[in-house]
Structure formats: C-alpha cells, structure tokens
Write a protein that binds this DNA or RNA. Structure first.
Lengths: 201, 201
DNA sequence: GTCTATATTTCGATAGAC
DNA sequence: GTCTATCGAAATATAGAC
C-alpha cells in the first residue's frame, strides 16, 4: 500500500498478472520466480523489489483475487424465496465453476497445509461471508416465523454444500463438469430441498 | 506386483510408510526423494530401484491408500431407511474427516491439476463407488415406489455433498472442524432433508 | 527502481563398487 | 539389491552497475 514504489505502477500490474497465471498453472511449489519474471517481461530482481519473497507475492495474488470474486456475487434484493435462492444459486455456480476459480481454490487448498492463515483468510473473505448473508435472509424473510439462527446457518451451509459439493469436487479432481442443463437440475433440486426443510418445524 | 524385488520385502514397506508421511506432510512438489529416503532409513538409490521415479512412487501410495479407505466403509445391510442413512453418514464423516484422509485428499486435489488420471482414479475408487451404492439403495428400498434412477443419483450426490461439503471444506483450508455434537446436527439435518425429498413425488 | 550476473542450495536421477 | 558419491539442472535470493 504505502510501500508502493513511487514510479512504474505498470510493472507492478505486469508482475501480478504474470504471477497469477503462473501460480494457477503450476501451483505454489511448481511455480518459479524465474518464470514469473520472464512472463512479466521484467527482471527477477524487480519482482523481489516489489514483493519481497515468493510467499508474500502469492499471498498478495490470493487476497486480490478473493476480493474480486467476492464482489462479483451480489445478493438478490427482490423476489420470493424460491426466486432469491435460484438467483443466488445460479450466480454461485457460475462463479465457482470458472476454470480460474477452480485453479485458485485448488492452489489455496494445497497451500493451506503449510499456511493455515491463507485458508482462514480465504474462508472469511469468501464462503463465510456469503453463507452468513443467506442465513440472515432465511431467518428474516417476510411472511415466515423466525427460525433458530444456528439452524438457519446450518441450512445455508448445506445449501451451498449441495451446490458446490458434487460439481466442484469433480472439477477439483480434473474431471468434467456437468452440462448446463444438468447443472440446472442440481440447482433446482437444491432449492427444492432447502425450501422443504426451511418451511417445516 | 511381479516386479517386487526377490529379497527385502521389509525395505519396500519402510519406503511406502516414509513416503506416505512425507507426501502428506509436504505435498508432491514439496516432498523430496532425499527426505523420503532418509525417513525410511534407506539409501535414495534403493527408493529408485523399487519405484522408478517420484511420480510412480506417489501414484503407488495414493492407490494403496484409496483401497484401504474404500474398504473401511461398509454399506449397512439392515434397518429402515433413516437408520441406514444415519449409519452411512456416520461412517462417511468419521472416515473423511480423519487428518490423514484430509491430507491425502488435499494432495490429490493439488496434483490433479497436472495429472488428471490421478483424480479420475481417486474419484472412481472413492466417491463414485459409494454414491452409486446409495443411489441403488434409494431406488429399490422396500415399500417405496421406484424413482427415476438419475434422480436417485442426484439425491445420493447431494446427500454426500451435504455431509462433506461444509466440514470438509473447512478441514481442507486448515480450519477447525466442528465438535462431534455439531457434527451430529449436520448428520441429522442431512438425513432429514434427504428423506423429505426422497419420499415426495 | 531496474537491470545483468552470480552466489548458494537443493532437487531428481545416475554411476559404480560390493 | 543396496550402498556412497556425484552429476547436471533448476530453484530462491542477492550483489553491484546504472
């Protein structure tokens, strides 16, 4: 932030772009600073001047990318419960099944083993935020008696688990993801199950 | 198999044990053949004589571990639907949230980016097998009209997605996993939701 | 701040004695 | 089959000129 070099803001962007593509392509351990520098068309020393070391560079890329993706998903403001859930689900699936999103998620998972703070930061910036939004919505939607907040939280977690669970698992393992029509079947099933569970009790 | 060295079956086991712990500890790229050999108290050349190269050694470890874990989970043979689901869920959660299972899964995910066959082999040996078992059961349980098989398959996938989705995601990111009492809440919710969805239509 | 050049370490894999 | 010793490549990080 305040550490930003006084000149050449362009080089910094070149490095970020190049580093992101190399990291997502080869993972953290598999990416080399030489390749990052080469792809950024910049000397390696310039990379070190801007980001200090490999780990810090990676953390900077992840933080930036998480913010971008989180702000892409907007909570629907209008419509009945079914429609809100369907819109939310559609956005969620579209964002999380992007090849770049899968590659980023994969790399974060891989690196969380040696750097738990990274996983925690990602969880707080991504899954936790959106889950909490849905839990709040479920707890105070119009025309419904309020449910236990912890129960709403579990319902929200299971809703997103149903959406991302199967398809994202396949994607993480490098397997083909379902066709859009099949995705819609998952989406509708998840919405139906949440509604059935949410209105009882 | 037939390639097994004629003598010293003990060394091979030492190498497998050491390699597994090093790979799960540091990932594929982060693990070095030197450390594996040192931990196995064996020379590096001996490792190469047994497994050829680093990738083959890793694949052998993953295959063995998948088999072990798959055979640990047994499909319940008796009980009503709710009880069968509950038992299945309990086994599934206990096995998949083991630290070793998480570490293995993490490493497979990480390496699937560069080696899709590994992810495919894991999926076929693990998730696919158990999901298919549940789908068959749902489709032919006594006293119920048969449902569409593809629908049963989706229900089964969503059942396991609900079970592993949230908790396993947290574990993969290095975050704390819920207390056993909280796990039971997830388990019961998942069973209830599947029953509600499975008996309608 | 940016470059070229290099120091230093560590890796996967191999050679050769026994 | 197993060991010690080592090669050649590639890695992270730094030094010093401009």
């Amino acid at each position: 932030m305040a550490r930003t070099p006084t000149s050449s803001p362009g080089k910094r962007d070149q490095i970020i772009t190049a580093a992101r593509s190399v990291f997502l392509e080869s993972g953290f351990a598999g990416a080399s600073m030489d390749r990052i520098a080469a792809r950024a068309r910049v000397s390696k020393q310039t990379v070190y001047n801007h980001f200090g070391c490999k780990a810090d560079l990676f953390a900077a890329i992840v933080r930036k990318r998480c913010d971008e993706m989180t702000h892409t998903l907007v909570f629907p403001k209008s419509g009945d419960t079914a429609e809100v859930l369907r819109q939310l689900a559609r956005q969620f699936i579209e964002i999380t099944l992007t090849p770049e999103a899968i590659a980023l998620y994969r790399t974060i998972i891989c690196e969380s083993a040696r750097c738990p703070e990274l996983g925690a930061a990602f969880y707080a910036a991504g899954p936790d935020r959106i889950t909490e939004s849905l839990a709040e919505y479920l707890n105070q939607r119009p025309g419904q008696s309020r449910m236990n907040l912890s129960r709403a939280r579990i319902l929200a977690e299971q809703f997103f688990a149903m959406l991302h669970g199967h398809l994202q698992t396949r994607a993480l393992l490098g397997l083909s993801t379902a066709h859009p029509t099949q995705r819609n079947a998952y989406l509708d099933q998840a919405v139906a199950m949440l509604l059935a569970a949410g209105y009882e009790t």
